[in-house]
Design a protein around this nucleic acid. Structure first.
Lengths: 211, 211
DNA sequence: CTTCGAAAGATCGTATACGATTTCGATCCG
DNA sequence: CGGATCGAAATCGTATACGATCTTTCGAAG
């Protein structure tokens, strides 16, 4: 029936709840309750939770189930530090290898992100992830792409929790377009610099909020 | 009864089979068979497999289950590239922050690794992982430590598949001791350099084997 | 009033069972 | 002989059920 596997759907649903803050840090995950709410049994839910634990979004305690992972300034630094080590080079490599379809696809992802930013809906997060991944995936490096996705998700928790969209969207849009232009034109060095400053900028904003 | 959670035990068991090559690249994972062999049901096995998929050790196909992930020269380059971006700095940071107990613990891990290398048993892999993680964990960076562990495991597959222990163990032991000395003395710059060259050396060996 | 302990309730973790899907093999048709 | 078709067997994925563990409650003892 459904095109996508059940644990995939559940995984994305719960992940979105955690990133948005609908499920709060430290909050225990009641498996029967959540499974009932999603209309499934605990089996596929637990598989999704096992993945989320791997992603660093939940933690499990023996015989006490899962809870939403906490946030800390230290971890924020860690996540952005890892992103800075990986994403700039990955995006630069991808810009070298991207095919015309890849560029068109990234362009569409940028458009979708712009629309979402203008609409201000709840799927800005997803469109943002899609765009950033579209800049990395053409590298052909699967593991790196998966890693970038996870780090982006971890970072997004801090952005959602501590940063207001106000004012940031305008700068973000400009940065996205500059970045896309350089990426699409195959200027890897510019891409590397722009990705780095894009990530650093978000980290600076966060540091201000976290004192 | 058992101290460790069932999915954990299964996860480590299956991971060891994949890393050692006992379960070969491309080989489908028969859940009923494997679960019976382990004396458990499919439920905890599938949770373990969900984790292994996240680690990049198996892949799943909708309604067709899991299979052991393939190996490729490209992925080997990718894995070692990621390790080079992350491990040297992580170990250097850890060497700055390590407590006396951390240093003692790392020393014990090194001793255990030496013993395993001398004995030549099948748990060289585990002791090797333990030692390298003992050099990173004191950084206090959980996500980075987890990442290093996964990358080390991915890399180990290539080492097991393509490199002979012969000759390498002597050099490895020397490198481990130099590295531990620098790390234990809190010389982060040396640590960074030594970790980098340790990883690069393994990559060079691999490249020779992979043509 | 506090502390301890036991019983009840809540929650977890997994074995079992079964429907759904895929794979395999034999037969039929072109 | 090659390819399609259909039924049987194998395999997957998950809902249900239940034992195990943890948490809470409540009463008794100090």
């Amino acid at each position: 029936m459904g095109e996508r596997a059940l644990p995939d759907v559940i995984y994305e649903d719960v992940r979105a709840r955690i990133v948005s803050g609908a499920m709060e840090p430290g909050q225990p995950v009641r498996q029967d309750t959540l499974a009932a709410e999603l209309g499934v049994s605990k089996i596929p839910l637990r598989e999704a939770l096992a993945r989320l634990e791997r992603d660093g979004l939940v933690v499990s305690h023996r015989n006490r189930g899962f809870e939403v992972r906490g946030l800390s300034a230290e971890e924020a630094e860690e996540v952005f530090d890892l992103r800075l080590k990986i994403e700039p080079a990955a995006a630069a490599l991808a810009s070298r290898r991207a095919s015309p379809e890849d560029r068109a696809s990234a362009g569409r992802a940028l458009d979708a992100l712009d629309e979402a930013l203008q609409a201000g809906g709840p799927d800005v997060s997803d469109r943002n992830r899609d765009f950033h991944l579209a800049l990395v995936r053409p590298s052909g490096r699967e593991l790196t792409t998966q890693l970038v996705e996870r780090l982006h998700t971890l970072a997004e928790r801090y952005v959602q929790a501590h940063l207001e969209p106000q004012g940031r969207t305008a700068r973000a849009r400009a940065e996205h377009h500059d970045l896309f232009d350089a990426w699409s034109a195959g200027r890897p060095h510019s891409v590397e610099t722009l990705v780095r400053s894009h990530i650093s900028g978000a980290l600076e904003d966060l540091r201000r909020q976290l004192r």
